[in-house]
Design a protein around this nucleic acid. Structure first.
Lengths: 228, 228
DNA sequence: CGTGGTGTTGAATTACCTCAATAAGCGTGG
DNA sequence: CCACGCTTATTGAGGTAATTCAACACCACG
């Protein structure tokens, strides 16, 4: 499980890439020195561990990543899933506050944190972008606090499915990139409860399943489950 | 409960104050135009509501504030308590994403959000401070996600007590500034469970109580309850 | 002294968990 | 293409931590 792999991101990939964000809003705009290096991880490979020095910042190109925290007895809380286009691993402070692992074979582009910080110290525009990213992470975390603190199992799962759908393009038919365990550890439930809840939602006609991961949502019904 | 009070913070308090943060790290340093206006709220008074335009940013001077989110059926999650020295209400985006209310009679200093944003657009230093604040909020929220998703009632209450103690100065004897309901709604529990857990912790010798709010912690014991 | 808000305690209920068995995917190699 | 083994997912039965409902105690304040 804990694949102890030492990254040496300085050696590989010679092709450097300047990386923009979503069309229009280039990431770290106007900072030519902030170029990213492509990098890849295998399924279940650790990208960085909690407590390690935060040397890099990552942007998902293909695949998916989870970040989590663990208690010493193994209880785990997944704080976020990161899909193509998402940035993760951006800390201020010297160390990572959680662990990141690839859900599947994943390509990322990495940036040196120091470089970003130096750019932010000079450019108000870059610094504002960092603020924006932290703020949107904060919004997500606060919404999730409400979910974890006050919502029932069905509500959690329904909310989660709609969220993933949206982030995957909103086609309402897709393959979940994560296991039941990952979902459970994100929603503060057990795998069994997640599984049962999927079954229940299917019975209620709120979704269709094909082979575990593949789902097709009836969004209106799901929305009625969450109702707020 | 929902005291609908219209604030007109433009009219009152003539005494303007420039406000620094913790000693050494002045808040919005080097920005003389960012001065705060003192303002006060009564116990249980709403400071701003979810969805309202985010016109001001607030810094607690005396008293205490809670910020929360609600579901339409009334379930509530308190996302944070704000004690003297803390900043709250800082959004990026036009509207507040939660409601803020005074726990007790509270004095704050308010800043115009636009002013701060304008300063950030010009000064990398100010922008970096905004990033820092958002990032520390994010760290808190992520720790709290772990608590809400994976910890038992005793662990939640014990963690909470140690946190409040620390933020109040770490004397381990203090009066909780919030009700059982507030604590419950912060920890994702019911008032009864919080109450029972206090009793249990007292039996276990992890704390002493005097009249509901007043507590005296045996920190070593509490730490053993949380254990990690 | 009442009165209303706040906190505690008890008894019964329940949503979710734990333990355990079975089934369904899925990659590998014959 | 099927058999095999391994991982992942589903389902059932029983247990439990936390909730719900309800009664009572405690102040603070008129």
């Amino acid at each position: 499980m804990a694949a102890e792999i030492t990254l040496s991101p300085t050696s590989p990939a010679t092709a450097k890439v300047t990386v923009g964000g979503k069309p229009g809003t280039a990431l770290f705009a106007g900072c030519p020195e902030l170029i990213g290096t492509p990098f890849a991880y295998d399924r279940e490979e650790e990208i960085y561990g909690e407590g390690e020095e935060a040397e890099f910042v990552y942007k998902v190109v293909r695949g998916a990543v989870r970040t989590h925290k663990v208690l010493n007895d193994g209880r785990r809380q997944i704080t976020g899933f990161h899909l193509p286009g998402d940035l993760f691993g951006l800390e201020q402070g010297e160390t990572h506050r959680h662990t990141a692992e690839a859900l599947s074979d994943t390509q990322v582009v990495i940036f040196k944190r120091r470089g970003i910080e130096r750019a932010a110290a000079r450019s108000a525009e870059v610094a504002c972008q960092l603020w924006t990213m932290a703020a949107s992470g904060l919004r997500y975390a606060q919404d999730h606090m409400l979910l974890l603190g006050r919502r029932s199992a069905v509500e959690r799962v329904a909310t989660f499915l709609m969220e993933v759908d949206e982030r995957l393009g909103g086609t309402s038919t897709f393959a979940l990139p994560m296991t039941r365990r990952d979902i459970a550890d994100h929603l503060g439930l057990t795998i069994e409860t997640v599984s049962r809840t999927f079954s229940q939602l299917e019975e209620d006609g709120a979704l269709l399943r094909a082979g575990g991961r593949q789902v097709s949502l009836r969004r209106a019904r799901l929305r009625r489950v969450v109702e707020d």
